[in-house]
């Protein structure tokens, strides 16, 4: 696994001696360990100034901190499979990848990574919410990729241990990463689902910058499935291109060839969308992106998306292609539509 080189590592003084912090520090590359700065609170620095998003390319810092305030939040409507309550918990901020449409570019005022190490409190809160709302879903990866840094944080084992005790609750780990070595060593649980975002080969290469190519993602999915892990898929965001229907036909064919589509827990579909703030940042950061070729327009909720007619056309086309490949209709849902 490639080690990410952080320019500086900021650690909150009060958690320096916490076991999880020490473990993370010990797994950092030597060069990053030479640039550790001890601080009172990550909020004294992170988000204090507007740090340009693209500085993540050559000036990325890591903050190891304690998450205060709300640790588990209810997810918005249409976030996951309907009929159940969905929550996400906050274990870190920001992502090492650089997907051109990513909403994180307009969300935090810095691309720096923050990893929270007070897992005991986060786990306690998950337990309490799970008790209050049996059968709920919990999602990691709302503000970060769930697996990309898991070799550094070592958190995967903790999640499995926790959700073994909560068999009625479900955990979704959203990712584009192929960092599955740790996962392959863990005994699978039916209520822990690794959900992979997959896009067409062209989008993985030219839009999901710095992410693993499609064939590597599919290989990771296959290995997890073979190990007995539950896997979900997000065909989200679907992005228009002059050959979008052919490209998505190929994608679905590839999925059906390379992984066990019949064993997939669910598949979510979504079309590219931006809030106004994120769209403004996207235009500034990626003026030459192929996403601009699509007919993006302001929608009913002020978000920037394709016109409804085009969205429906694209979603139903991909849905039908999946059904044609024997995916059960009830396992496919539209995300944020």
């Amino acid at each position: 696994m490639e080690m990410i080189l952080f320019k500086k590592v900021f650690i909150e003084k009060n958690i320096v001696n916490v076991e999880t912090t020490k473990n993370i520090v010990s797994r950092l590359p030597k060069k990053s360990r030479e640039n550790i700065v001890y601080i009172d609170s990550y909020q004294d620095i992170f988000g204090k100034v507007k740090k340009p998003y693209l500085q993540k390319r050559d000036n990325l810092n890591l903050f190891i901190a304690e998450k205060k305030g709300v640790l588990v939040k209810e997810a918005p409507e249409a976030y996951g499979l309907s009929g159940e309550k969905h929550f996400y918990f906050i274990n870190s901020y920001n992502c090492i990848y650089e997907c051109e449409y990513c909403y994180l570019q307009g969300f935090f005022n810095s691309p720096d990574i923050v990893v929270f190490t007070n897992w005991d409190e986060i786990k306690k809160e998950i337990k309490s919410v799970a008790k209050k709302y049996p059968g709920s879903w919990f999602h990691a990866g709302e503000f970060s990729d769930s697996l990309a840094l898991s070799h550094l944080t070592g958190e995967l084992g903790h999640y499995f241990k926790l959700f073994k005790e909560l068999p009625e609750a479900k955990l979704e780990l959203r990712t584009k990463s192929i960092n599955i070595r740790e996962a392959l060593e863990i005994d699978p649980l039916n209520n822990v689902i690794f959900s992979f975002s997959v896009s067409t080969e062209d989008a993985c290469k030219n839009i999901d910058l710095k992410t693993p190519p499609l064939k590597h993602r599919l290989k990771a999915i296959k290995e997890l499935q073979d190990r007995g892990h539950q896997v979900g898929l997000h065909l989200d965001p679907i992005i228009w291109s002059p050959n979008w229907s052919e490209e998505h036909t190929h994608l679905v064919e590839k999925l059906s060839r390379e992984i066990s589509l019949d064993k997939v827990s669910y598949i979510s579909l979504g079309v590219v969308r931006f809030t106004e703030t994120v769209y403004h940042q996207f235009k500034k950061n990626y003026p030459a992106s192929s996403i601009h070729q699509g007919e993006l327009t302001k929608s009913f909720d002020q978000k920037i998306r394709y016109p409804r007619a085009l969205r429906n056309k694209m979603l139903s086309f991909v849905r039908e292609s999946l059904i044609f490949r024997e995916v059960k209709k009830e396992l496919i849902y539209d995300c944020m539509e």
Partner: peptide, 19 residues
């Protein structure tokens, strides 16, 4: 220079947000 920030008061940990 790459990006410019305004440091208002280091003792009070005050920075101007705009860069």
């Amino acid at each position: 220079g790459k990006t410019i920030y305004l440091g208002k008061d280091a003792k009070a940990k005050k920075m101007e947000f705009k860069s």
